[in-house]
Design a protein around this nucleic acid. Structure first.
Lengths: 132, 132
DNA sequence: TTGTCATACCTGACAGCGTTAGGTATAGTG
DNA sequence: CACTATACCTAACGCTGTCAGGTATGACAA
């Protein structure tokens, strides 16, 4: 059974920042866990590569939207945890505004064309793994 | 009164193809008219540049999603009209699927975070200028 | 010991695409 | 004649995902 949907790179690029910021609003997290969280939130339909995520995290840090710290998990592994800043929360709100503006426009024309607005996948309500 | 919202380039890139294809499903159109239609559909919140749109149209043509023809309008101006192909309609459906998958995921986490899903802007119901 | 998998991080070359800025041409209007 | 709107096109630049590669460790099985 095929689960993963191929999402084109522009859509990945457009959603990566709001998605990562949203995950960090849930609580502090780290790269590898974020990759799994995205898979989980999308019901297995989205599969991010780490080669795409780490540069995103570094960029967010450079922009002051997140702060990073190293920690050693009980498992003994080192992890780089990220925490969203107040500036990051503002950015998150702005990203949401933009996304909703574009989404409303797309849905508007789809509706005009008589295309039924599928409710689509119902997002999982699983609670996030809370930060350390 | 400020109307135009700055939309970041990645979101523009992600929405340009589904938007253009949707507009062409409404009926044949040409570059300059598409720019105005986007402004109209978004309630003035989106403002595309022609330097971004023309390459999109050329790409869609190269991919076989649209076909182009030159026409002379009653105004005496030459226009390059585009018509969506059957392959373009398939691509349109695929773009919609991908958009809705990502949108559902984002809305899912927003909901979990307790962020109210604003209905946002209600798209205009103005009928499109029908193609020649 | 050795092999394999999952965990966990990082980087570089490449290609695609919007931004910005420039160009050309014509119809309508003052 | 100047100016605006219409209508098309292209090039240099920078950003960002893809793809492929790298390093390291813990758990488990052969």
């Amino acid at each position: 059974m095929r689960e993963v949907m191929e999402i084109n790179k522009d859509l990945i690029a457009a959603s990566s920042t709001p998605m990562v910021l949203a995950i960090l609003v849930e609580g502090d997290s780290y790269g590898y866990a974020i990759l799994k969280r995205v898979r989980e939130l999308s019901g297995g339909r989205m599969e991010w590569t780490d080669g795409m995520l780490y540069p995103v995290l570094h960029r967010l840090e450079r922009l002051g939207h997140v702060e990073a710290r190293w920690e050693i998990a009980e498992s003994g592994r080192r992890r780089k945890y990220y925490r969203i800043t107040s500036g990051g929360r503002e950015q998150f709100a702005e990203e949401r505004r933009q996304w909703q503006a574009v989404d409303a426009t797309l849905r508007g024309i789809w509706t005009e064309l008589g295309i039924p607005l599928s409710a689509g996948y119902q997002a999982s309500a699983t609670s996030p793994p809370h930060g350390a």
